[in-house]
Amino acid sequence: MLELAIGIILGGCALGAGAAMIAGIGPGIGEGNAVAKACEAIGRQPECKGDVTTTMLMGCAVAETTGLYALVIAILLIFLAPGRFVDILLNAIH
């Protein structure tokens, strides 16, 4: 029984981490949009290349934040949560 419970905990954490990383889609689309617009802008005004590139990188980095939150949650679920949850389970049993 205990093994099954621990297995469920581990599997749940892994599934949760995987599900959290779905959030990677958002920044991907957003950054793709940003880069596309930046390319258009550079194509229209090649002399503004430096400014456009800097702004685009800034925007990309800010847009990436949500993806990184998801990454942090996933890392928490993989590295920290199983141990904590198993501890809680063992404490509850004893």
């Binding site: 980095a61 800010v62 990436e64 934040t65 990184l68 939150y69 990454l71 942090v72 890392i75």
Partner: peptide, 9 residues
């Protein structure tokens, strides 16, 4: 988290 997550990832 942005800085940390980027380097850690």
């Amino acid at each position: 988290f942005r800085h940390y997550g980027n380097v850690l990832s």
